[in-house]
Simulated scan of single mutants.
Amino acid sequence: MKPVSDLRDQVGESPVWSPEEQALWWVDIDGQWLRRHHPATDRTQSWATPERTGCIALHAQGGLIAAMETGLWRLQPQDDGRLDAALVAPVGHARDHMRFNDGRTDRQGRFWAGTMVRDMSLASDAGALYRWDERGLVKVLDGLITPNGLGFSPDGRTMYLSDSHPSVQKVWAFDLDDEGTPRNRRLFIDFNEHPGRPDGAAVDAEGGYWICANDAGLVHRFTPDGRLDRSIAVPVAKPAMCAFGGAALDTLYVTSIRPASPPPEQAALAGALFVDCPGARGLPEAPCKA
């Protein structure tokens, strides 16, 4: 696994492949950057964001939908470096100093994102999972500390969600009905039995669940029945989220976090965007329709 460029993020998150542009979008949450990389030209562009952005998704009408601190925003990046940003759905957080964290669209084009208290040391369960579609922004699950690991099975009938806080470290599976209501919550992976904490995830074309093992420098692949299939090493301790991209969707991109004091042997690479070809193929991300 190798770095894509010399660029380093504070908290690299939410990689999303755009088939139309043949480019990868992602964010640096704490650095407040939106980024895009074109592999064909090896060019990376960056746009400053008005707030911390936890996650993004492609939008069916162009541009992006982004879950930030105060709610959901429509983003229209311009080639001259300007970012046109408009708040479309404010969120009423349960307490102060919260923001959105991990999120993505499901197979039907509904956008899902979780919220968290920024200070993880508080272990506050004020976080919640929201769904955004033509009916508006709706809270569908609460009692979360650090929601992460959102993913959807190839048929869209199963939703995966983790809580990556050290006191939880579990991934759950839910049945997802046609209306987007998650039901039948059940334990999918107990990460206390595996290296690392469960961070951002992606699902491949065979239903395999790929999840970054934060603090362990690994990306794990689990089979649809929850068995660990294999692990891929990342040359930094804190991989954050993964996504499939490339023309054939057979390239795995992995964002990472740069801690305040990375180990000396990782200082040059912490915060990098990494790329690998793991021998699996992903699925195109549905654009947000709302």
Rank of each mutant, 00 (worst) to 15 (best):
D80E: 13
F100T: 00
G109I: 02
R131A: 13
H38K: 11
G271I: 00
D155A: 06
R36C: 14
T158W: 08
G71P: 04
D163G: 01
T41W: 07
R197K: 12
L273I: 11
E13R: 07
Q10Y: 06
G103I: 00
L249V: 13
M241H: 05
R99T: 02
G196Y: 01
I65S: 03
G180V: 04
S124I: 00
S167L: 11
T44W: 02
D84G: 06
F244P: 01
M120Y: 10
D102T: 13
F152V: 10
L269N: 09
S14I: 10
M241P: 03
Q61E: 14
Q76H: 09
G127N: 03
D225S: 14
R82F: 03
L34V: 12
L24Q: 07
G12E: 06
G282Q: 06
Y253G: 05
F188C: 03
Q169L: 13
V138P: 05
W210F: 13
L150G: 12
F222E: 07
R227C: 12
M98R: 00
M1C: 05
S18C: 15
T223L: 06
E193V: 00
R43H: 12
V27Q: 02
K2C: 03
W47N: 08
G109Y: 10
M98K: 01
P264H: 10
R8G: 09
L64Y: 07
C288L: 11
N148C: 09
A260G: 13
C55A: 15
I29Y: 02
R221L: 11
D133V: 10
A280C: 15
D30P: 01
L64T: 05
Q76W: 07
G63I: 03
V4A: 09
E179I: 03
A126P: 11
R230T: 14
L7A: 12
T70F: 01
D28G: 08
S164Q: 09
D133M: 10
F191P: 01
S256Y: 06
P198G: 03
I189D: 04
A201F: 13
T146F: 15
M120D: 12
H220R: 09
S167D: 15
A201G: 10
F222A: 12
H93S: 04
A237N: 09
S162I: 03
P19Q: 05
V16I: 15
P278T: 12
D102S: 12
R221M: 12
R43L: 14
Y130K: 00
R99A: 06
H97R: 14
R230N: 13
L137R: 10
K170G: 05
P224I: 02
T223G: 03
Q45F: 07
L34C: 11
R227W: 04
I56T: 10
D84V: 11
D178L: 13
D28C: 08
A268P: 06
G54H: 02
K139F: 01
L161E: 02
W26T: 11
F222H: 05
L75S: 01
A243N: 04
S124W: 01
A205P: 07
F188Q: 02
E134C: 10
L34T: 13
L176A: 09
